[in-house]
Design a protein around this nucleic acid. Structure first.
Ligand code: ZN
Ligand code: ZN
Ligand code: ZN
Ligand code: ZN
Lengths: 145, 145
DNA sequence: TGACAATTGAAAATGAATATCATAAACTAT
DNA sequence: ATAGTTTATGATATTCATTTTCAATTGTCA
C-alpha cells in the first residue's frame, strides 16, 4: 500500500475528507523524505503546485498528519516545528545536530532497547516513543580550524 | 564552591555584572532544584522576592545562565521553555513524559555511552551533549482503567 | 568619587501557531 | 447526477512566548 492509499484509508477511518490540499502536502513531504522541512518551508513548496493554498491549511494539515501517524514532528530548538515522513522501516533514527554549522545528520538504528527495558522496569513507565538528539560537531566542522 | 560563587566567577570572567536581579533568579532556581520551571513561573516566584523585576530581565537572565552553563534549558513540546539547575553530579538524567497526565519523571543515569561511542565512530561526529525524552504512561496512569 | 559600560524595566515588536467565520468542496444517500 | 449534510478552506485577526528598543539606572574599577 502506498502513502496515498494510507492517507485515504486513515482519513476515511476517522471521517475526514480527502482534499487536494492534503494530497499536495503529502506529495511535498514525500518528495523530501530525507529533509526536515519546517511548516513555512512546506508551505512555500506546496504553493508552487497549488498557489491558492492558505498557510493555515498547511498548519492544520501537518497537525492532522501527525495525529494520523503519517509524519513525525521534530524540534531542533529553533522555535519552530519541522516534519519528516513517518517510515516504518526507517523511523528508528536519531538526529545529530552540529553546533557550528547547524546541519542535522541522521544516525540510523534505534539502539535504546536496553535503556528502555531498564526504565520500564525501574520506573514502571510504559514507553511508547522517544526523542533523542545529540549535539556536537560534524565531521566537516571538526576538520576545519 | 557554592552556586553564587560560581555565578560571580563566571560573570566576571566574561565581563558581566553581578546584579541583584541575577542573584535572586539564581536563588529561585536553586530553591526549586527538582522542578522544571518555565520562564513565567520563575518570573512569578522572583517577583515575590523582588517585585520591581521586569519580565524581560528574567528572559534575558535565563538565556545568560544557559550560556554560562548554570542552567539547562528543557523543552517538553508545550510551546515554552523550562529550566533546571545544572548539577554536575545529577545532570545525567533523562525525562519521562506521561502522555496522559503530563507528569515529568526523571530517570537518573546516562546509559548512552555505548551509543555515543558508536556514533562518534561511524559518523565522525564529536558529541558534546544530548537530549533524551521518553514518552509513555507513568505508573499512576497505567494502573487506572 | 567619577567615568564608562553593562543592565534594567516598560513598552512595543516579532513571529510561529491558532482561532474565527463566511464560503467552498467532499461525501452520502437518494 | 443531485440535494443535503458535514467537513475543509482561505483570509484575516488573534494569541502567546519571546525579543527588541531605548532612556534611565546601576555595578565596576581606577
Ligand atoms: Zn558542522
Ligand atoms: Zn530525520
Ligand atoms: Zn501519568
Ligand atoms: Zn530534570
Amino acid at each position: 500500500m502506498n502513502e496515498f492509499d494510507k492517507l485515504k484509508e486513515k482519513l476515511k477511518e476517522k471521517g475526514f475528507k480527502l482534499t487536494t490540499q492534503r494530497r499536495v502536502i503529502l506529495d511535498v513531504i514525500m518528495e523530501n523524505k530525507n529533509k526536515h522541512l519546517s511548516s513555512e518551508e512546506i508551505y512555500d513548496l506546496v504553493k508552487r503546485k497549488y498557489p491558492e493554498i492558505g498557510l493555515a491549511t498547511v498548519y492544520r494539515t501537518l497537525q492532522l498528519f501527525e495525529e494520523l501517524g503519517l509524519v513525525y514532528k521534530l524540534n531542533f530548538d529553533e522555535g519552530r516545528n519541522r516534519y519528516e515522513l513517518y517510515q516504518e522501516d526507517a523511523h528508528q533514527h536519531h538526529h545529530l545536530i552540529c553546533l557550528k554549522c547547524g546541519n542535522v545528520i541522521e544516525m540510523e538504528g534505534d539502539l535504546l532497547e536496553d535503556l528502555e527495558k531498564l526504565i520500564e522496569k525501574t520506573k514502571n513507565f510504559e514507553i511508547v516513543d522517544h526523542n533523542v538528539k545529540f549535539y556536537g560537531y560534524c565531521s566537516n566542522c571538526r576538520n576545519k580550524v
